[in-house]
Computed example of a mutant assay.
Amino acid sequence: MVQLITGKRKEDYMNQYSFQSFFSFDISPFVQVCAFEKGEYIFQESSLPESLYYMVEGKAKLYVTHKNGKVSLINFITSPSFMGEVELLNAQKYTKGIQAVTKTVCFSIPYNACKQKLLADSVFLRELCLFLGNKMTQTTNRFSQTQAYPLENRLAAFILMSSDDNFYKEKHTEISEYLGVSYRHLLHTFAHFCQSNMIRKSNKGYEIIDRQKLQELAREV
């Protein structure tokens, strides 16, 4: 269940992340601060989004379900990050699914409260353009890394990025597609990481044993 953070704690979050600086008008009356628990949906897939979110703490995953029932992981979203910005600009009507991977805290601005103010605010639009430009660059870099770096480097970086409380638990089928490798190759690399005592298989998924080794591999990417 989504928790709302109110009162002084809301003010503290606004000040800590300088959220007011993103706007030329007073945004505080329109903003809610929301906390999502791990596994909760920020956006249900194919829904009509009602709010623009700005994630300031936590991680989430963006996915899409195809007509044949296959689920594809599109990207991991890490803070700070806007969510629902494409829908705000009317470039996309229905949202893809976004699910919290860790406990996640977001600023939420309901569209019906001030959509026209947002779209007319040059300060906010500049922030949004910078975010979209960085997002495009990151996507391009990820695809180029698929060709330029071995799987063990990219997998180490992915495990560190997607883990929660020192545990990694993602579906191998989705991750092999996301990383652009065969299922067999992915399993072989996980086995190598376990044999090298970097991770250990458990009932919860994989526990990170040697974070430093993983970081050394990830730094190559």
Results as ranks from 00 to 15, higher is better:
Q116I: 03
L62F: 07
S108N: 05
N112E: 15
K59P: 01
E37L: 11
T65H: 11
F107D: 10
C106R: 00
E85Q: 06
S79P: 11
V105H: 01
M83L: 14
S81T: 14
K61P: 02
S46A: 12
A113F: 02
E87H: 01
I109S: 09
N68T: 12
N75H: 10
S81R: 09
F43C: 11
T95Q: 09
I74Q: 10
V56L: 05
G97S: 10
E57R: 05
Y41N: 07
T104S: 12
K59N: 08
E40F: 02
T78E: 03
K115F: 00
G84P: 10
F82Q: 00
V56S: 10
G69N: 07
P49K: 05
L48N: 09
N75E: 12
Q99V: 03
K59C: 02
A91I: 12
H66Y: 09
K115T: 11
S51I: 01
Q44H: 13
N75C: 02
Y94T: 10
V86S: 13
N90L: 14
N75A: 10
Y41P: 05
K67R: 14
F36P: 06
V56P: 12
P80T: 08
L88D: 13
L62S: 08
F82Y: 06
Y63R: 13
I74V: 13
K115A: 09
Y111W: 04
E37G: 15
F43N: 10
Y94M: 13
V71R: 08
G39I: 08
L73G: 02
I109Y: 03
N90F: 11
A91V: 12
F107G: 02
K103E: 05
L88G: 04
Y53Q: 06
P80A: 06
E45P: 02
E37W: 02
I42C: 09
A100R: 03
Q92M: 13
K93W: 07
S79M: 06
G69W: 04
S46I: 11
K38I: 10
F107K: 04
P110Y: 08
V86T: 08
S79C: 09
K93D: 15
C106L: 05
N68G: 00
Q116Y: 02
V105I: 14
Y41V: 02
G69E: 07
T65F: 02
F82N: 00
G58E: 10
S72D: 10
V64K: 14
V56R: 02
F76Y: 13
L62H: 13
E87T: 01
C106H: 00
P80I: 08
Q116F: 01
V56A: 01
E85C: 03
I98T: 12
T65P: 01
L89V: 03
M55Q: 11
L48M: 11
C114F: 00
G97E: 11
F82V: 04
P80Q: 09
Y94Q: 06
